[in-house]
Amino acid sequence: MAQIEFDERLRRIQRRNRRLSRGAVPYIDSTGLVTFRPKRRGLRLPLRGLLLVAAGFVVFKGLVLAHLGQELYEDRLALLRSGTVIEQGGAWAMEIDPATEWVAAQLWPFLN
């Protein structure tokens, strides 16, 4: 029994040491003891940055819609829809949605 517990503890220590050898971050616990934790690996998406990019894209679409007007904007989208696969993807991304309409309505008085 004691040998099994010892082997399990040894495996945990070895696994932790392997993870620490790939990079570590210092951490101070509540008692003030400095220990090292393994760095997290994997894909970590910056959610705040992605949301800012999405919001900026919606504002850009609203600005273009307010500047061109609904009819001309739809004509340009129709032209994109009849193009290559990449242009069709751009037309899909530039579709008018409720958020874009709201931004365009807010910006329209400043542009016209």
Score class of each variant (00 low, 15 high):
residue 3 Q to M: 08
residue 4 I to T: 15
residue 4 I to D: 15
residue 6 F to C: 03
residue 6 F to H: 10
residue 6 F to M: 11
residue 8 E to H: 13
residue 10 L to E: 14
residue 10 L to P: 04
residue 13 I to T: 06
residue 13 I to F: 07
residue 13 I to N: 04
residue 14 Q to K: 12
residue 14 Q to E: 14
residue 14 Q to A: 11
residue 15 R to C: 00
residue 15 R to G: 00
residue 15 R to I: 03
residue 16 R to L: 08
residue 17 N to I: 10
residue 18 R to G: 05
residue 18 R to P: 02
residue 19 R to V: 05
residue 22 R to C: 11
residue 23 G to W: 14
residue 24 A to G: 06
residue 26 P to M: 02
residue 26 P to R: 03
residue 27 Y to V: 13
residue 28 I to R: 12
residue 29 D to V: 07
residue 30 S to H: 11
residue 30 S to N: 11
residue 31 T to M: 09
residue 32 G to A: 14
residue 32 G to I: 13
residue 34 V to P: 03
residue 36 F to L: 12
residue 36 F to V: 07
residue 37 R to K: 15
residue 38 P to W: 05
residue 38 P to N: 04
residue 40 R to M: 15
residue 40 R to K: 15
residue 41 R to L: 14
residue 43 L to C: 07
residue 44 R to D: 11
residue 45 L to W: 06
residue 45 L to Q: 06
residue 46 P to H: 01
residue 46 P to K: 01
residue 47 L to A: 10
residue 47 L to R: 09
residue 48 R to G: 06
residue 49 G to T: 05
residue 50 L to D: 06
residue 50 L to S: 06
residue 52 L to I: 14
residue 52 L to P: 00
residue 54 A to V: 06
residue 54 A to F: 08
residue 55 A to V: 00
residue 55 A to D: 01
residue 56 G to N: 06
residue 57 F to M: 12
residue 58 V to F: 02
residue 58 V to H: 03
residue 58 V to E: 10
residue 59 V to P: 03
residue 60 F to R: 07
residue 63 L to M: 14
residue 64 V to E: 08
residue 65 L to E: 09
residue 65 L to I: 10
residue 65 L to D: 09
residue 66 A to N: 03
residue 66 A to S: 09
residue 67 H to R: 05
residue 67 H to Q: 02
residue 68 L to H: 01
residue 69 G to F: 00
residue 71 E to N: 00
residue 71 E to S: 00
residue 72 L to T: 07
residue 72 L to D: 01
residue 73 Y to Q: 02
residue 74 E to I: 01
residue 77 L to F: 03
residue 77 L to K: 02
residue 78 A to E: 08
residue 78 A to P: 00
residue 79 L to K: 13
residue 80 L to E: 09
residue 80 L to T: 11
residue 82 S to V: 10
residue 83 G to I: 10
residue 84 T to K: 05
residue 85 V to Y: 04
residue 86 I to A: 08
residue 88 Q to N: 05
residue 89 G to D: 06
residue 89 G to Y: 06
residue 90 G to W: 04
residue 90 G to I: 03
residue 91 A to P: 07
residue 95 E to W: 13
residue 95 E to R: 15
residue 96 I to D: 05
residue 96 I to F: 07
residue 100 T to M: 09
residue 100 T to E: 07
residue 101 E to T: 08
residue 101 E to A: 10
residue 102 W to S: 07
residue 102 W to P: 00
residue 104 A to F: 12
residue 104 A to M: 11
residue 105 A to V: 04
residue 105 A to C: 02
residue 105 A to T: 11
residue 106 Q to E: 15
residue 107 L to C: 12
residue 108 W to E: 14
residue 110 F to D: 03
residue 110 F to H: 11
residue 110 F to A: 12
residue 112 N to L: 03
residue 112 N to K: 11
